[in-house]
């Protein structure tokens, strides 16, 4: 008898614990699902609307399941839609951004890798101070540099040109790329460099043969960071360049604020997606490195 009662309470306790577990799981997944909806709905809205017809959008509103399907908005947005009087769609601005982001990302990453290598493995008197000064660039607000950049780019003949923006982003990017690479290289043991020096390798050979082969993780982080940062940048794009020399972010603003004609949400949705797609692709394919860059960039 006593034994039966005993097992009874255990069963009851076990059931209670089990119920509690199930409830907590339901709450956890429920909350996650609700928040996910909030996060994902804006994306769905844009994607859906880029395939819906305009009459359907104005009838059912922007937030609705598609009842119609057509692809025309995409070619329109790409090549014929008028932005600020120029009726060639997003393509020119898209390529401006591509032409800007690729060289700027590569150059600033390479410079950062070199700087990080020197500031971690070839320290010299004063190198820590130099590093701290470079670090300040991370925190500088862009507004401070607007006038000087406009002046300098004008003087060297790069005003209103994609090359000017490349220069600006390279120089602004050095702080971040140096910070990332230096902090990563610090964790590579100094003994490796010493061993290589005894083995007869010099500054460059150690960089190419020892450090660079160890660098892919940080180079990926840096490239992703620079790519998304430069692609998404707006202030310099709109201030330093004008008309058809602007990058895609400036074009997107021009497109949504030229309020004269009726709002063509289908084409605008497609245009917005064209502008958002490259960094989104980078995010979905390089997710782990993207997050690592975020956390490193913030906490250091």
């Amino acid at each position: 008898m006593a034994e039966a009662v005993y097992t009874g309470t255990i069963d009851r306790e076990a059931t209670r614990a089990n119920t509690r577990y199930i409830i907590s799981r339901v709450v956890i997944y429920g909350l996650l699902a609700i928040f996910s909806l909030v996060y994902i709905i804006p994306l769905f809205v844009v994607v859906f609307n880029s395939f819906r017809t305009l009459p359907e959008i104005s009838q059912n509103g922007l937030i609705a399941f598609p009842q119609s399907f057509r692809l025309d908005a995409w070619p329109d947005a790409w090549s014929t839609f008028c932005i600020g009087g120029n009726c060639e769609g997003m393509q020119k601005y898209f390529w401006n951004s591509v032409k800007m982001v690729i060289p700027a990302t590569i150059i600033s990453t390479l410079l950062g890798a070199m700087n990080g290598y020197i500031l971690s493995k070839w320290k010299f008197p004063g190198s820590e101070i130099i590093f701290t000064c470079m670090l300040l660039g991370v925190f500088m607000p862009g507004q401070i540099a607007l006038l000087p950049w406009a002046f300098i780019l004008g003087k060297i003949g790069l005003a209103n040109s994609v090359y000017g923006l490349i220069l600006v982003h390279c120089i602004q990017g050095i702080s971040f790329t140096t910070l990332f690479c230096r902090n990563y290289y610090v964790s590579i043991p100094d003994d490796l460099v010493k061993a290589a020096r005894i083995d007869g390798a010099g500054f460059w050979r150690i960089f190419y043969k020892i450090i660079l082969p160890l660098s892919p993780p940080i180079l990926i982080v840096t490239v992703i960071w620079q790519f998304t940062g430069i692609w998404n940048e707006y202030l310099y794009g709109v201030v330093l360049n004008s008309g058809t020399n602007q990058p895609i972010t400036a074009a997107l603003v021009a497109l949504s604020t030229n309020g004269t004609n009726v709002r063509v949400y289908d084409v605008m949705s497609a245009a917005v997606l064209i502008g958002a797609l490259p960094p989104l692709l980078v995010y979905f394919f390089g997710g782990k490195y993207f997050v690592r860059g975020l956390t490193q960039g913030a906490i250091k």
């Binding site: 043991p189 003994d191 061993a195 290589a196 005894i198 007869g200 390798a201």
Partner: peptide, 15 residues
């Protein structure tokens, strides 16, 4: 590199 020495490190320092 010109001292004609070889060294074994505590951490081994293998590449």
């Amino acid at each position: 590199k010109d001292r004609d020495i070889a060294m074994v490190f505590q951490s081994y320092a293998l590449y």
